[in-house]
Write a protein that binds this DNA or RNA. Structure first.
Lengths: 358, 358
DNA sequence: TGGGTGCGTGAATCCGTAA
DNA sequence: CTTACGGATTCACGCACCC
């Protein structure tokens, strides 16, 4: 049987996977429903409404139901993979642990878990948790014996000649890349950035390989596959998504020169919050800092990285400005600490941390 | 029964957990073993860890054994947690997916998965995978109904007044912090950096809280707990680790001034009803308040602490929301009063009353 | 054309307490 | 148990618009 290359199969992915010949494809990339279990509506501080994912396809009645669904599509995906093939799944804390456990139970062999570190995530509007600023991908081979594809040198080249790490900083899919329908509404609630698929396909497929995406959505996998000279087979239930994906992929021109896809890092100096100095134990809470000529002002360091004086509390910059009655202040150079008989600016601690971050 | 505070219990953690009273502790921090080995023994990973696979390996049986172990200690930990308590687990892709699924099955409620992004990870020497540059922590409440502790303001302060994200860049435990034995050998193969525990305990416990660490190792949790004015209960099977931990913790000096440990938050400040402002005579009934840009709306203060406009009557919050046609409104910041030529938010009156309450 | 400002928005398990 | 209500809560970008 010939594979339906570079096409989108409409309908349930499990049936379609079962219709493909066994051991016939090189890679599976899957972005399954996350089972978010959202509550009511959520408002921003400005009272605007957050457009959450409330689509029916993301709703499951129980973990058991989600597990059943997961194991069924994973088993079907494993069957169509070549023995040396591999699979990627993306998810969030709502579902990724269940997916990961299922992978292991089915005999997949984990190679890496990858953190997609979002440079511009949505904040936590109620101040109830840490900002949920990442998603997790799992990369696994069909089995522990698979001789999987990993383009080590391409990854190193993409990363300024340093080994590519397991955490990838990539922006959300926004702006002109984001598919919009009538009245500017997003076509798909969870469209992934092409940069993410670039990296996945560049790292773990060869030109001409066949990539199956069982939850094709609006076709990011297909668009990037075409661009990179890989074949795709998409599976998707929603005809509207399929239509948008077809139109999108038709516009894609394969790139001749793959080196154009390198994304050199910005090489910006890492921001070091003053709190890190405390957390690292370079200053103890309670330490006294001195500011101004002849140590005119003093302040005490708190465990949360703020300073206190008799009258003020806040960041090193804010308190520095307040005691001087100045509009602004660079706390790193204003405040000094005792070091033996000397007074040393606390900026030396930031230098030390930056050195460790390299 | 009195809790064995600030001590280390030698032996298996499951037995010790079962010996503690139910619903008695505030937090569990766990760094469980994750290396699966034939023969049923669960060992910590060390530097000689082999990547290869034993062909006789039976995935399902081994995973099941690990799952059994995991569910037993998690269930025991859940029993000793207060209903509003929480639990942290740290792991890598070898085990964290199984742990995460078990957590959800046992009724824990996930709050965040946190990525410990290592600034100085060990490179992948063979160039076969992405550099494994992170570990994953899961923070979860005992149940979805738990009113868990999250010191939002302290986290924001630690991060230069930006919300703390779910990815934390922290160096490995090296240098003088790393416990060394005879001939400079590492005492423990996977000693965690104190900075990691600092953030965990600062974020999710209050001073005086009781923290249980069932896999205490060389006592990073205990050392940071003591420093931050929290109580710990450690559990550990290896007497050598216990000895090293005791020596280490004995040297730790707690932060003396408790006021340096807690970050004041608006949520914990005493509630001041607007009526108190009237009762105290800080505003006369009949005073006109102004809301919105350029004082778009006006309202009159009534003697009972409500406001009236032409169309509405109610609390400062309710009327503020009604005139704006908004779902909610903070009347303290929305409404302003005339003070000379200036317009001052009525929140200044609340500040005044709160100051007098001290 | 160019810089500055303002607005919209993204896979979100997003309140706590008293009556 | 539910209901009511006080009042606390946002970061990084892309784009439109304006002078």
């Amino acid at each position: 049987m010939k594979l339906p290359l570079d096409t989108i199969l409409e309908g349930d992915c499990i049936a379609h996977l079962e219709s493909l010949p066994a051991k016939s494809v090189d890679l599976v990339f899957a972005d399954p429903p996350y089972n978010l279990q959202l509550g009511g509506e959520l408002l921003r501080p400005d009272n605007s409404k957050v457009d959450g994912v409330d689509d029916a396809w993301d709703h499951f009645d129980s973990f058991r139901e989600y597990d059943d669904f997961t194991r069924r599509w994973l088993a079907a995906a494993r069957r169509v993979l070549k023995d040396d093939g591999a699979l990627w799944v993306i998810g969030s804390y709502h579902n990724i642990f269940r997916v990961g456990a299922a992978l292991q139970d089915l005999g997949f062999w984990m190679l890496n878990d990858i953190v997609w570190r979002k440079s511009n995530p949505m904040p936590n509007f109620r101040g109830t948790r840490f900002t949920n600023a990442h998603e997790t991908l799992i990369w696994c081979a069909k089995s522990a014996e698979s001789r999987y594809t990993f383009n080590y040198d391409a990854m190193k080249a993409l990363n300024d000649d340093l080994q590519m790490r397991s955490d990838w900083t990539i922006p959300l899919c926004t702006g002109s890349e984001r598919l919009k329908g009538a009245e500017g509404a997003k076509v798909h609630p969870t469209q992934k950035p092409e940069m993410l698929l670039f990296r996945v396909l560049m790292a773990t497929t060869k030109p001409g390989d066949v990539v199956v995406d069982p939850f094709f959505g609006t076709g990011t996998t297909g668009a990037v596959a075409k661009k990179l000279g890989r074949h795709f087979i998409g599976m998707e239930r929603d005809p509207d998504y399929i239509a948008a994906a077809k139109e999108r992929i038709a516009k894609v021109r394969p790139v001749a020169d793959l080196s154009l896809l390198a994304t050199p890092s910005k090489r910006t100096e890492p921001r070091v919050p003053f709190g890190t100095v405390i957390e690292r134990g370079l200053l103890e809470p309670g330490t006294v800092l001195y500011g101004g000529e002849k140590a005119k002002w003093t302040a005490k360091v708190r465990a949360d990285g703020t300073l206190v004086t008799a009258d003020h509390r806040g960041s090193i910059h804010k308190v520095g400005a307040l005691v001087q009655n100045a509009p602004a202040c660079n706390g790193w150079t204003f405040w000094r600490m005792k070091k033996g008989d000397e007074m040393v600016p606390i900026d030396s601690l930031r230098q030390q941390i930056r050195a460790e971050l390299h």
